[in-house]
Amino acid sequence: MAVINLKEKIIQVKIVYYGPGRSGKTTNLVYIYNKLQEKLKDKMTNKLISINTKGDRTLFFDFLPVELGKIHGLDLKLQIYTTPGQLIYDVTRKLVLKGVDGLVFTADSLLVRREANLENLEILKKNLAYYNSSLEEIPIAFQWNKRDLAEDGVPLLDIDTLETDLNAVLKAPSFPASALNGYNVLKTLKMAAKLTIQSVIKKLVLPEGRAKAIGS
């Protein structure tokens, strides 16, 4: 659910990174955070919030607010979240998806994680259905993460297999990436942000758009 505050001239949208456990969702956010810190240095006020287990696995979510310039005279604020990938955290994962405006599906390119990717996409559909939503309504970008491991000779799923398994129906934008070294991390985020803003604006301008207007 996007919020537009015309007094403060702000538009806030929520983007959620979803995917199997250890697929690199948190690593994406850490990379984005470090890049922002490099750029803004002392001016950096944004904090990366992580609610982790003792073993550094995401328990509830990671959260990073990012300002991305102006759109139609409004300051664009992205609220970026990750979900816990492990199946036992299904309840908290569902909570993070409440009010989601856009998604990034971080798939694990490891050959052995093929089933985990498929299973997670199905759970994502179920989680969205809980909020009477679906992948047809929420814009999504796919990220085929851990491509850097190919250099170390680790068996990976080829891009075509990932596309066929996960993106054959949606045909959404997708990026081979490495969250660890930053390859296509920002590109994925930019695409997700672009699709999300387009979708929010479309919902707002269409007469049947489900926007609630407060005030006159």
């Binding site: 537009i4 015309l6 707002l204 758009g209 926007a211 609630k212 407060i214 005030g215 006159s216």
Partner: peptide, 13 residues
């Protein structure tokens, strides 16, 4: 569901 908050209502709140 998106929310648009107009200036007068933000003041009221």
């Amino acid at each position: 569901m998106n929310i648009i908050l107009k200036k007068n209502k933000v003041n009221e709140l």
